[in-house]
Amino acid sequence: MNTRQLKQIFGFNLLRICAGIIFLSIILILYDIASKGLNIISWEFIFSMPKKGMTEGGIFPAIVGTVMVTSITAIVSIPLGMGCAIYLNEYAKNGKLTRLIRLSIRNLSGVPSIVYGLFGVVLFVQLMNFGTSILSAGLTLGLMTLPWTVTASEEALKNVPKSYREGSLALGATKWQAIRTNVLPYAVGGMLTGTILGLARAAGETAPILFTGVAFYIPFIPKSVSSQFMALPYHLYVMSTQHPAIEQVKPIAYGTALVLIIVVFAMNLSAIILRYKLRKLKEE
Protein backbone atom coordinates (compact mmCIF):
# COMPACT_ATOMS: atom_id res chain seq x y z
CA MET A 1 0.00 0.00 0.00
CA ASN A 2 1.51 3.34 -0.99
CA THR A 3 1.12 6.76 0.57
CA ARG A 4 -1.54 7.81 -1.92
CA GLN A 5 -3.88 5.13 -0.77
CA LEU A 6 -3.05 5.73 2.88
CA LYS A 7 -3.90 9.40 2.38
CA GLN A 8 -7.20 8.45 0.79
CA ILE A 9 -8.17 6.13 3.63
CA PHE A 10 -7.20 8.73 6.21
CA GLY A 11 -9.01 11.53 4.38
CA PHE A 12 -12.24 9.69 3.80
CA ASN A 13 -12.37 8.51 7.39
CA LEU A 14 -11.91 12.10 8.53
CA LEU A 15 -14.91 13.13 6.42
CA ARG A 16 -16.85 10.18 7.77
CA ILE A 17 -16.17 11.42 11.30
CA CYS A 18 -17.50 14.87 10.36
CA ALA A 19 -20.73 13.39 9.05
CA GLY A 20 -20.94 11.14 12.10
CA ILE A 21 -20.62 14.07 14.51
CA ILE A 22 -23.48 15.91 12.80
CA PHE A 23 -25.65 12.82 12.88
CA LEU A 24 -24.80 12.17 16.53
CA SER A 25 -25.70 15.70 17.55
CA ILE A 26 -29.17 15.31 16.04
CA ILE A 27 -29.65 12.01 17.83
CA LEU A 28 -28.47 13.60 21.09
CA ILE A 29 -30.89 16.51 20.81
CA LEU A 30 -33.80 14.22 20.02
CA TYR A 31 -32.89 11.79 22.79
CA ASP A 32 -32.54 14.53 25.38
CA ILE A 33 -35.90 16.08 24.56
CA ALA A 34 -37.74 12.82 24.08
CA SER A 35 -36.46 11.18 27.25
CA LYS A 36 -37.39 14.17 29.40
CA GLY A 37 -40.55 15.15 27.58
CA LEU A 38 -42.22 11.81 27.03
CA ASN A 39 -43.30 11.20 30.61
CA ILE A 40 -45.21 14.46 30.85
CA ILE A 41 -47.00 14.24 27.53
CA SER A 42 -50.51 12.92 27.81
CA TRP A 43 -53.90 13.81 26.35
CA GLU A 44 -54.50 15.90 29.40
CA PHE A 45 -51.24 17.83 28.87
CA ILE A 46 -52.17 18.58 25.29
CA PHE A 47 -55.83 19.39 25.77
CA SER A 48 -55.95 21.32 29.02
CA MET A 49 -55.33 24.92 30.01
CA PRO A 50 -52.27 26.02 31.96
CA LYS A 51 -53.06 26.39 35.65
CA LYS A 52 -51.52 28.15 38.67
CA GLY A 53 -49.23 30.52 36.79
CA MET A 54 -48.30 27.83 34.27
CA THR A 55 -46.73 25.54 36.88
CA GLU A 56 -49.44 22.95 36.23
CA GLY A 57 -51.84 21.98 33.51
CA GLY A 58 -51.38 21.74 29.78
CA ILE A 59 -50.46 23.74 26.74
CA PHE A 60 -53.69 23.74 24.74
CA PRO A 61 -53.87 27.53 24.15
CA ALA A 62 -50.29 27.51 22.87
CA ILE A 63 -51.11 24.77 20.37
CA VAL A 64 -54.25 26.56 19.20
CA GLY A 65 -52.32 29.85 18.94
CA THR A 66 -49.59 28.26 16.84
CA VAL A 67 -52.15 26.65 14.54
CA MET A 68 -54.07 29.92 14.09
CA VAL A 69 -50.95 31.98 13.38
CA THR A 70 -49.62 29.40 10.95
CA SER A 71 -52.90 29.36 9.06
CA ILE A 72 -52.83 33.15 8.67
CA THR A 73 -49.25 32.82 7.51
CA ALA A 74 -50.40 30.28 4.92
CA ILE A 75 -53.27 32.51 3.77
CA VAL A 76 -50.83 35.38 3.26
CA SER A 77 -47.83 33.65 1.81
CA ILE A 78 -49.34 30.98 -0.47
CA PRO A 79 -51.24 33.24 -2.92
CA LEU A 80 -48.66 36.02 -2.82
CA GLY A 81 -45.70 33.69 -3.19
CA MET A 82 -47.24 31.58 -5.92
CA GLY A 83 -48.38 34.66 -7.83
CA CYS A 84 -44.91 36.16 -7.63
CA ALA A 85 -43.34 32.89 -8.77
CA ILE A 86 -45.75 32.55 -11.72
CA TYR A 87 -45.02 36.11 -12.76
CA LEU A 88 -41.26 35.68 -12.47
CA ASN A 89 -41.12 32.36 -14.26
CA GLU A 90 -43.80 32.76 -16.92
CA TYR A 91 -44.37 36.41 -17.68
CA ALA A 92 -41.30 38.41 -16.72
CA LYS A 93 -38.63 38.98 -19.34
CA ASN A 94 -35.04 38.53 -18.31
CA GLY A 95 -34.30 42.19 -17.72
CA LYS A 96 -32.74 44.34 -15.06
CA LEU A 97 -36.00 44.60 -13.12
CA THR A 98 -36.44 40.84 -12.91
CA ARG A 99 -32.89 40.42 -11.70
CA LEU A 100 -33.51 43.07 -9.07
CA ILE A 101 -36.66 41.30 -7.89
CA ARG A 102 -34.86 37.97 -7.72
CA LEU A 103 -31.95 39.54 -5.88
CA SER A 104 -34.21 41.12 -3.30
CA ILE A 105 -36.08 37.85 -2.79
CA ARG A 106 -32.83 36.02 -2.19
CA ASN A 107 -31.73 38.73 0.20
CA LEU A 108 -35.03 38.66 2.04
CA SER A 109 -34.48 35.00 2.85
CA GLY A 110 -31.27 35.98 4.64
CA VAL A 111 -32.73 38.80 6.70
CA PRO A 112 -32.64 37.96 10.43
CA SER A 113 -36.00 37.00 11.90
CA ILE A 114 -35.80 39.70 14.57
CA VAL A 115 -35.60 42.36 11.85
CA TYR A 116 -38.88 41.00 10.48
CA GLY A 117 -40.21 41.36 13.99
CA LEU A 118 -39.20 45.03 14.14
CA PHE A 119 -40.72 45.61 10.72
CA GLY A 120 -43.92 43.91 11.80
CA VAL A 121 -44.17 46.12 14.88
CA VAL A 122 -43.93 49.28 12.83
CA LEU A 123 -46.06 48.25 9.87
CA PHE A 124 -48.80 46.01 11.26
CA VAL A 125 -49.01 46.84 14.94
CA GLN A 126 -48.62 50.61 14.72
CA LEU A 127 -49.13 51.87 11.18
CA MET A 128 -52.03 49.61 10.25
CA ASN A 129 -53.34 49.64 13.79
CA PHE A 130 -53.87 45.87 14.11
CA GLY A 131 -52.35 46.00 17.58
CA THR A 132 -50.49 43.05 19.06
CA SER A 133 -52.65 40.29 17.67
CA ILE A 134 -52.75 36.98 15.86
CA LEU A 135 -53.27 38.93 12.63
CA SER A 136 -50.10 41.04 13.02
CA ALA A 137 -48.03 38.00 13.97
CA GLY A 138 -49.42 35.95 11.08
CA LEU A 139 -48.75 38.72 8.59
CA THR A 140 -45.19 39.16 9.86
CA LEU A 141 -44.51 35.43 9.59
CA GLY A 142 -46.17 35.47 6.16
CA LEU A 143 -43.67 38.07 4.96
CA MET A 144 -40.88 35.99 6.41
CA THR A 145 -41.91 32.79 4.60
CA LEU A 146 -42.47 34.57 1.26
CA PRO A 147 -38.92 34.11 -0.05
CA TRP A 148 -39.09 30.35 0.55
CA THR A 149 -42.50 30.06 -1.07
CA VAL A 150 -41.39 32.05 -4.11
CA THR A 151 -38.14 30.15 -4.58
CA ALA A 152 -39.76 26.73 -4.16
CA SER A 153 -42.67 27.61 -6.46
CA GLU A 154 -40.29 28.88 -9.11
CA GLU A 155 -38.30 25.66 -8.99
CA ALA A 156 -41.52 23.68 -9.39
CA LEU A 157 -42.57 25.78 -12.38
CA LYS A 158 -39.16 25.39 -13.99
CA ASN A 159 -39.50 21.63 -13.80
CA VAL A 160 -42.57 21.63 -16.07
CA PRO A 161 -41.30 20.85 -19.60
CA LYS A 162 -41.48 23.68 -22.13
CA SER A 163 -43.38 21.50 -24.60
CA TYR A 164 -46.45 21.56 -22.30
CA ARG A 165 -46.70 25.32 -22.66
CA GLU A 166 -45.90 25.35 -26.35
CA GLY A 167 -48.42 22.63 -27.14
CA SER A 168 -51.17 24.59 -25.48
CA LEU A 169 -50.14 27.88 -27.05
CA ALA A 170 -50.02 26.25 -30.47
CA LEU A 171 -53.66 25.21 -30.09
CA GLY A 172 -54.58 28.88 -29.77
CA ALA A 173 -54.84 29.17 -25.99
CA THR A 174 -53.89 32.46 -24.41
CA LYS A 175 -50.87 32.57 -22.16
CA TRP A 176 -52.96 32.50 -19.00
CA GLN A 177 -55.04 29.57 -20.28
CA ALA A 178 -51.86 27.67 -21.06
CA ILE A 179 -50.50 28.31 -17.58
CA ARG A 180 -53.77 27.50 -15.85
CA THR A 181 -54.56 24.26 -17.66
CA ASN A 182 -51.17 22.90 -18.66
CA VAL A 183 -48.56 24.22 -16.27
CA LEU A 184 -50.13 24.78 -12.85
CA PRO A 185 -51.64 21.29 -12.43
CA TYR A 186 -48.16 19.81 -12.83
CA ALA A 187 -46.38 22.37 -10.72
CA VAL A 188 -48.84 22.78 -7.87
CA GLY A 189 -47.55 19.79 -5.92
CA GLY A 190 -43.99 21.02 -5.95
CA MET A 191 -45.20 24.47 -5.01
CA LEU A 192 -47.09 23.11 -2.04
CA THR A 193 -44.13 21.03 -0.87
CA GLY A 194 -41.92 24.09 -0.68
CA THR A 195 -44.64 26.10 0.98
CA ILE A 196 -45.22 23.51 3.69
CA LEU A 197 -41.50 23.46 4.46
CA GLY A 198 -41.60 27.24 4.79
CA LEU A 199 -44.65 27.09 7.04
CA ALA A 200 -42.98 24.51 9.25
CA ARG A 201 -40.16 26.96 9.82
CA ALA A 202 -42.61 29.75 10.51
CA ALA A 203 -44.41 27.61 13.10
CA GLY A 204 -41.17 27.27 15.06
CA GLU A 205 -40.09 30.90 14.93
CA THR A 206 -40.14 32.99 18.09
CA ALA A 207 -38.42 36.28 17.28
CA PRO A 208 -40.92 37.72 14.74
CA ILE A 209 -43.95 37.08 16.95
CA LEU A 210 -42.29 38.32 20.11
CA PHE A 211 -43.60 41.89 19.76
CA THR A 212 -46.36 41.39 17.25
CA GLY A 213 -48.81 39.36 19.26
CA VAL A 214 -47.57 36.58 21.49
CA ALA A 215 -48.43 36.77 25.17
CA PHE A 216 -46.89 35.35 28.31
CA TYR A 217 -49.92 33.71 29.83
CA ILE A 218 -53.50 33.60 28.54
CA PRO A 219 -55.37 30.66 30.01
CA PHE A 220 -58.12 30.58 27.38
CA ILE A 221 -58.50 30.08 23.66
CA PRO A 222 -58.14 33.28 21.57
CA LYS A 223 -61.57 34.44 20.43
CA SER A 224 -60.70 36.29 17.22
CA VAL A 225 -57.71 37.14 15.06
CA SER A 226 -57.32 40.48 16.80
CA SER A 227 -56.60 39.05 20.23
CA GLN A 228 -53.25 38.12 21.70
CA PHE A 229 -52.27 34.49 21.83
CA MET A 230 -49.86 31.93 23.25
CA ALA A 231 -47.54 30.08 20.89
CA LEU A 232 -45.50 26.91 21.35
CA PRO A 233 -42.03 28.35 20.63
CA TYR A 234 -42.57 31.38 22.86
CA HIS A 235 -44.08 29.20 25.56
CA LEU A 236 -40.95 27.06 25.43
CA TYR A 237 -38.73 30.14 25.71
CA VAL A 238 -40.70 31.43 28.69
CA MET A 239 -40.69 28.06 30.40
CA SER A 240 -36.97 27.53 30.02
CA THR A 241 -35.59 30.99 30.81
CA GLN A 242 -38.19 33.48 32.06
CA HIS A 243 -40.48 31.67 34.45
CA PRO A 244 -40.03 32.52 38.16
CA ALA A 245 -40.26 28.87 39.25
CA ILE A 246 -37.86 27.57 36.66
CA GLU A 247 -37.06 24.18 38.20
CA GLN A 248 -40.71 23.40 38.79
CA VAL A 249 -41.75 24.00 35.18
CA LYS A 250 -38.82 22.23 33.55
CA PRO A 251 -40.82 19.09 32.70
CA ILE A 252 -43.48 21.27 31.06
CA ALA A 253 -40.76 22.99 29.02
CA TYR A 254 -39.49 19.64 27.79
CA GLY A 255 -43.03 18.52 27.00
CA THR A 256 -43.61 21.72 25.01
CA ALA A 257 -40.34 21.20 23.13
CA LEU A 258 -41.37 17.67 22.23
CA VAL A 259 -44.81 18.77 21.01
CA LEU A 260 -43.22 21.56 18.95
CA ILE A 261 -40.72 19.17 17.39
CA ILE A 262 -43.49 16.68 16.61
CA VAL A 263 -45.60 19.41 14.96
CA VAL A 264 -42.71 20.64 12.81
CA PHE A 265 -41.58 17.09 11.92
CA ALA A 266 -45.13 16.15 10.97
CA MET A 267 -45.33 19.13 8.62
CA ASN A 268 -41.96 18.31 7.05
CA LEU A 269 -42.92 14.67 6.74
CA SER A 270 -46.16 15.52 4.97
CA ALA A 271 -44.17 17.67 2.52
CA ILE A 272 -41.79 14.79 1.86
CA ILE A 273 -44.64 12.31 1.38
CA LEU A 274 -46.38 14.73 -0.96
CA ARG A 275 -43.23 15.09 -3.03
CA TYR A 276 -42.70 11.34 -3.13
CA LYS A 277 -46.27 10.66 -4.26
CA LEU A 278 -46.06 13.33 -6.95
CA ARG A 279 -42.83 11.92 -8.27
CA LYS A 280 -44.50 8.53 -8.55
CA LEU A 281 -47.48 10.06 -10.35
CA LYS A 282 -45.17 11.74 -12.83
CA GLU A 283 -43.33 8.54 -13.58
CA GLU A 284 -46.54 6.78 -14.44
Binding site: P112, I114, V115, Q126, A207
Partner: peptide, 28 residues
Protein backbone atom coordinates in the same frame (compact mmCIF):
# COMPACT_ATOMS: atom_id res chain seq x y z
CA UNK B 1 -35.49 40.88 21.53
CA UNK B 2 -34.84 41.60 25.22
CA UNK B 3 -35.38 45.33 25.24
CA UNK B 4 -38.07 46.14 22.71
CA UNK B 5 -40.77 44.68 24.90
CA UNK B 6 -39.94 47.07 27.72
CA UNK B 7 -39.14 50.43 26.14
CA UNK B 8 -41.77 53.18 25.92
CA UNK B 9 -42.99 53.98 22.42
CA UNK B 10 -41.34 56.95 20.67
CA UNK B 11 -38.47 57.31 23.16
CA UNK B 12 -34.78 57.58 22.27
CA UNK B 13 -34.25 54.04 23.48
CA UNK B 14 -36.99 52.84 21.15
CA UNK B 15 -35.31 54.41 18.12
CA UNK B 16 -31.91 53.19 19.29
CA UNK B 17 -33.23 49.64 19.04
CA UNK B 18 -34.39 50.30 15.50
CA UNK B 19 -30.93 51.56 14.58
CA UNK B 20 -29.50 48.36 16.09
CA UNK B 21 -31.88 46.55 13.76
CA UNK B 22 -30.65 48.67 10.85
CA UNK B 23 -27.00 47.85 11.56
CA UNK B 24 -27.86 44.16 11.83
CA UNK B 25 -29.79 44.35 8.56
CA UNK B 26 -26.90 46.07 6.79
CA UNK B 27 -24.40 43.47 8.01
CA UNK B 28 -26.49 40.51 6.88
Amino acid sequence: AIELGEVPYDSTHYYALFSVGLVLFIIT
